[in-house]
């Protein structure tokens, strides 16, 4: 009798858990599904051939990709230092790295703009080199990178922290230089996390709206284009662009994830 009572309790609890979990999942799926269902395939096809839309998607993809790759050159070493070295103000540095995640993205955009606008040293230097920062792909990349860099740094730092120090010491003891230890031991072993971080940074940069719109309304990245179509023409004109962009994003993530999965299986 006691057993069946316990059994009933467990089943009831499980039911409750499943129900709540389902609600949370539905919360994510419902708006996306609703968006896709309520958008006609014809309008999506028309949008896909709209030059303004396709060039905007292309711009969003390459700026985010390039920003990720360029910034990774500094982010990965920073992550390695954070994982391996102890230095003064380390906790403060870790806190600073998370700042772009917690501040409002419009404020982030203002912050970026105040550094790269034409009146500043950075803006002037870039201008003298013939690079226009505000209202250009370069500015978009800076805004994207600013808000998305923490994802890469944190993921890479976790990856490096997981590499046993003993392995690096063993390599060192065998006579390997610090560069060799980093490239042959630490980096390959943290690679899975780093790629994860790269994908997250790329994704976050691609979907950035707040910071980008302040730095560059034109040329228009897709999140800005969706906003503009919604503002100027209404929901029905914004929807197909949104669906198309979501589709492109998903395709990229599935592709990149499967690539990293294969990598880790071979390793």
């Amino acid at each position: 009798m006691t057993q069946s009572t316990i059994g009933f309790k467990i089943n009831f609890f499980r039911l409750l858990l499943t129900f709540l979990a389902g609600l949370a999942l539905l919360f994510i799926i419902a708006p996306l599904l609703g968006l896709i269902i309520h958008t006609s395939p014809v309008s999506i096809a028309e949008t896909a051939s709209d030059k303004e839309v396709t060039s905007s998607i292309w711009l969003t993809l390459w700026t985010s990709m390039l920003a990720t790759l360029i910034l990774s050159l500094g982010a990965i070493p920073l992550a390695y230092l954070l994982a391996r070295r102890n230095f003064r103000f380390k906790r403060m540095v870790s806190g600073i790295i998370d700042l772009p995640i917690v501040i409002p993205h419009s404020a982030a955009g203002i912050a970026v703009l105040s550094v790269i606008s034409r009146e500043t040293i950075v803006g002037k230097t870039a201008g003298s080199l013939g690079i226009e920062m505000v209202g250009s792909p370069a500015g978009i990349m800076v805004a994207m990178a600013f808000v998305s860099l923490p994802f890469l740094i944190n993921a890479a730092r976790d990856g490096f922290s997981d590499v046993p120090v003993r392995l690096e010491q063993a390599a060192q003891n065998l006579g390997a230089s610090s560069i060799r230890v980093f490239f042959c031991i630490s980096l390959p072993l943290a690679w899975k996390n780093i790629v994860s971080g790269l994908i997250m940074m790329f994704a976050r940069g691609m979907s950035e709206f707040g910071a980008v719109i302040i730095v560059a309304y034109h040329p228009m990245v897709t999140p800005v284009l969706i906003f503009e179509r919604f503002g100027a023409f209404g929901l029905n004109y914004a929807k197909p662009v949104a669906v198309l962009f979501i589709g492109v994003c998903l395709m990229f993530f599935i592709l990149l994830r499967s690539f990293t999965k294969d990598k880790s299986q071979h390793a």
Partner: peptide, 29 residues
Amino acid sequence: PSGKRSIGLVFQDNTAFPHLSVRKNILFA
């Protein structure tokens, strides 16, 4: 520095490089 002393240490923990085959582990040295 450790690598220039001609003193080889085998740690108590397993320090075979997990991402490399046995052959590549030895080739590393």
